[in-house]
Simulated scan of single mutants.
Amino acid sequence: MTQQQNANPSAGSENGIMAVVVGPSGAGKDTLISLATEHFTNHPDVHFVRRVITRDGDAGGEDHISVSQEGFAAMRQAGSFAVWWEAHGLKYGIPAEVSSSLARGQLVVANGSRSALHLFQSAFPRLKVVNITARAEVLAGRLQARGRETHDEIMARLARGPLTVRGDFDVVEIDNSGSIEEARLNVIRVFNGFLQDLKQG
């Protein structure tokens, strides 16, 4: 469960767009962010955030900055995060340096959490939410393949909450129930749309 934590109210007073990517376990969020990063790697107006996480650097999954609990606390006290939150025993932080990219009018893409979206909304005036979803049976199959939970545990996880985003947010939904290539193209299309928004002011 994500606990309400902190948002820096001055972090997002800029011209750029913060796009936060969210989605349930098994939806393929990390994979799609990685593929989008590859596509936009040389684009001068797109910045992908490396989150600070109290998790081992070699734990797999996303490319992140690994710190200890003590290190995270010190960074938080120093004002090093634009947004930070806690979920499932880990702490996550969006570095305050993203404000420099936003001030330059860039599209900033961050891996987020649906239950922390109110923190992002407080920190970033121009917030876009990209919700990666998949049909329940697809999610169940992917989670089953990981082998970390029993079938009953997976069903209980999927029953705990909706797959959609609740709240007053500007949300784009991407269904990743089909091929990863189709979802990759959809993510790229969405990000290109945000870049068009930036050009139009």
Rank of each mutant, 00 (worst) to 15 (best):
F169L: 09
A116W: 03
K199E: 13
L32C: 03
E137T: 08
E137F: 05
G112F: 07
G167A: 11
Q196H: 13
F81C: 03
R166L: 12
T54N: 07
D152E: 15
T37A: 14
N176Q: 11
L185W: 04
H39Q: 11
Q3K: 12
D168A: 14
T150E: 06
V172C: 06
A59G: 09
F194L: 04
A59H: 13
G141L: 08
E149D: 13
A136M: 11
A103W: 10
F72C: 10
D197F: 06
V98N: 08
G16D: 09
V46I: 06
R157A: 12
G26C: 05
R50G: 03
F48E: 01
L143P: 00
A110K: 00
A82P: 05
P162C: 09
V129Y: 10
G89M: 12
A134D: 12
E181Y: 02
G93R: 05
R184D: 07
S80M: 08
R104K: 15
A159G: 10
I65S: 04
G60V: 07
I94V: 15
I132A: 02
Q3D: 10
T164H: 13
A7H: 13
G12F: 06
F124I: 07
D152I: 00
Q144C: 02
H47M: 03
G112T: 06
A7C: 15
A87T: 04
P125F: 07
A73P: 14
Q121V: 09
D170C: 08
Q77W: 07
V129Q: 09
S122E: 14
S80V: 04
F191Q: 00
W85S: 04
L102E: 01
L163A: 14
Q106I: 07
I53C: 00
R148N: 00
R114F: 05
Q69M: 15
G193F: 05
R76E: 14
N42M: 11
T150A: 08
N6R: 11
G60I: 00
P162M: 11
A140R: 14
V109P: 03
P162H: 06
R189D: 09
M1W: 11
G61W: 04
L195V: 01
V49A: 02
S101C: 08
G93D: 01
P24D: 10
H47P: 01
S113G: 00
V22N: 00
T2A: 11
G61I: 02
L158F: 10
W85T: 06
H39F: 13
N192F: 00
R160V: 04
R55E: 04
A27F: 01
D63N: 15
G178Y: 06
R166H: 13
L107M: 09
E97R: 15
S34G: 14
A156E: 14
H43P: 13
R157T: 12
G105W: 14
A145T: 01
T31H: 02
L198N: 10
G178N: 02
G112Y: 08
Y92M: 01
N15D: 15
H47D: 11
R76G: 10
T37F: 01
V138R: 01
A103Y: 05
F48V: 07
Q121I: 07
V67I: 15
L119K: 07
S25M: 10
V20G: 05
G193V: 02
H88F: 11
D152V: 04
L119I: 09
V49K: 03
F48S: 07
R148L: 06
G193W: 12
E86R: 14
E62M: 03
D63Q: 15
S113V: 03
V98K: 08
R135G: 09
